[in-house]
């Protein structure tokens, strides 16, 4: 299913997520249950499933963005490069978020110039020499296939870009941080087909260097882009394996029903 050379980058061990209910006495809302999953380096993992299946909770648990919700609770553990994400009091959450960059469904650009949007992350990490930043910005934009479109107006506000360009800028921003992991939460759900194709092209090119997790509502996109695919339903990991295999001979009936469009 994968070549044995690519090491495990992220491992979920009996991982669960629940959100405490607002009302006292009522049971917590379970979003993920007992997930056991390995994500390999230099591969793309597609995560599919209907809404409320726990896909987004899965992503936001990796970089602990879920910590922002007061009601968030977890069980089990996630390991990145063998190091626990939740256990160990000395986990540096900020450092963790730098390691696992995230791209959201709605392209969120900071209210800064195109250049500054990418330079923001590296600056936070203390890489701030002009020549180094220039190089980082250029490489990131080139890797995100955005360089040709914006190279003459790096100083103009990022908010002026089109939706598709903004999303590629968000990807470039993550690349600029040299995160080992790139997580994308339905990155093309708000984009037109042409922009979507460009993003998919970008992702395929990136997997040589990164561990990519793509959460998507678009089953065909998962099939096009993913090396491995994981199918979630109601917070449970139903099936996980080689993308070609999942899409041709799924083991579970629910997987088959979902990918053939019978529900979801």
């Amino acid at each position: 299913m994968k070549d044995d050379l690519s090491p495990v980058k992220i491992e979920f061990v009996n991982f669960g997520v629940s959100y405490r209910s607002e009302k006292a006495g009522s049971p917590p809302l379970s979003a993920l249950e007992n997930v056991a999953l390995k994500v390999y380096d230099k591969r793309i993992l597609s995560v599919i499933g209907p809404s409320r299946s726990g896909k987004t909770s899965l992503l936001r648990s990796i970089n602990r963005l879920n910590d922002l919700h007061a009601s968030f609770e977890h069980s089990g553990e996630i390991f990145i490069d063998g190091a626990p994400v939740y256990g160990g009091a000395d986990t540096d959450v900020t450092e963790l978020r730098r390691k696992a960059g995230m791209v959201f469904a709605r392209p969120v650009v900071l209210p800064l110039s195109i250049y500054e949007n990418i330079a923001y992350g590296p600056r936070l990490m203390g890489r701030s020499s002009k020549s180094e930043l220039d190089a980082t910005v250029e490489t990131a934009l080139k890797d995100a296939y955005l360089w040709e479109e914006v190279k003459d107006r790096l100083g103009s506000p990022a908010a002026a870009l089109s939706g598709g360009q903004r999303q590629r800028l968000c990807i470039a921003r993550v690349l600029g941080m040299r995160s080992g992991i790139i997580m994308l939460d339905e990155p093309t759900s708000a984009l037109d087909p042409v922009s979507t194709a460009k993003i998919e092209e970008t992702l395929t090119a990136l997997k040589n260097k990164y561990c990519v997790i793509l959460v998507t509502n678009n089953v065909k996109q998962a099939a096009r882009v993913g090396d491995e695919t994981a199918f979630f339903l109601m917070g449970k990991l139903i099936e996980y394996g080689d993308t070609a295999k999942i899409f041709t001979t799924p083991r579970d009936e629910r997987t088959e029903n979902y990918i053939t469009g019978r529900f979801g």
């Binding site: 970089n63 963005l65 922002l68 900020t94 450092e95 978020r97 730098r98 960059g101 995230m102 959201f104 709605r106 969120v108 650009v109 900071l110 209210p111 923001y120 992350g121 936070l124 990490m125 968000c170 921003r173 993550v174 941080m177």
Partner: peptide
């Protein structure tokens, strides 16, 4: 929007 905060936090801010 919350997304601004999350966007920056997800960048390691």
């Amino acid at each position: 929007p919350v997304s601004y905060r999350e966007g920056a936090l997800a960048l390691g801010a």
